[in-house]
């Protein structure tokens, strides 16, 4: 009899594979994006089984909570023409097939070399108070500090570059400066004018005729 844990694993694994397949087979791009979300979710479940709760929650937080939302955003606003998309499928098929074959081969090589033993056999069990987050933090800031910092700087460069590429200051744009508006005071904008009360104008011919 398989253990409860294995059962949950196979459930999540099957769900992941199913969702991943639907991502590429389903016609509606919005459905595809939603299936990708499902795939992320079930992956998070598998990571949870591996006691990597930090990674699992971060996967949900970052990919599901932010990246996929933006994806959906774009997909919903696009008017996707399926016929146009499918054009030239057979022309590019050999090219794609070769890449897929190479990737499958690579993955078999990587996984086959490391994990010849049974699933889960190479993993160590941890005590209940073991904190995956703490361990991860310790590793990142000690053993892997340089790669981590490098990655951080790379991301920073990407952010700065993205802003630099899209930022353009146009002349003559009349946008409001909120801070300035908030700081505006009555004294700056209102001038109270003191002047003597108006005197009766001398009566002219015009007004005379109007009265009459």
């Amino acid at each position: 009899m398989i253990s409860f844990e294995a059962l949950v694993f196979y459930l999540f694994a099957a769900l992941t594979v199913f969702a991943a397949l639907r991502v590429i087979t389903v016609r509606n791009p919005v459905y595809a994006a939603l299936f990708l979300v499902l795939a992320f979710f079930s992956m998070a479940g598998i990571w949870m089984l591996l006691e990597a709760e930090f990674l699992a929650v971060t996967l949900v937080l970052v990919y599901v909570g932010a990246v996929m939302v933006l994806f959906l955003f774009v997909v919903m606003m696009l008017d996707v023409d399926l016929a146009q998309l499918r054009e030239g499928f057979w022309r590019w098929f050999p090219f794609g097939a070769v890449i897929a074959a190479i990737m499958v081969f690579e993955m078999v090589m990587v996984l086959g070399a490391r994990q010849t033993s049974e699933t889960g056999a190479g993993l160590t069990r941890h005590a209940a108070d073991y904190s995956n987050t703490k361990e991860l933090g310790r590793l990142i800031y000690t053993d892997y500090v340089y790669p981590f910092e490098l990655a951080a700087v790379l991301l920073l460069v990407a952010i700065v570059a993205a802003i630099a590429l899209t930022l353009r200051r146009r002349k003559g744009v009349k946008s409001q400066d909120v801070a300035k508006q908030v700081a505006a005071r009555r004294e700056d904008n209102i001038r109270i004018v003191q002047m003597p009360a108006e005197k009766q104008m001398p009566v002219t011919g015009d007004q005379e005729s109007e009265k009459a």
Binding site: V37, E53, F54, V57, T58, V60, L61, V64, G65, A66, V69, L72, F73, M76, S131, N132, T133
Partner: peptide, 19 residues
Amino acid sequence: NAGLLYILAMTSLGVYGII
């Protein structure tokens, strides 16, 4: 243990229903 992260993840999911 990762309660705070879990909360963040859950609150960020609410947006799906709306979209």
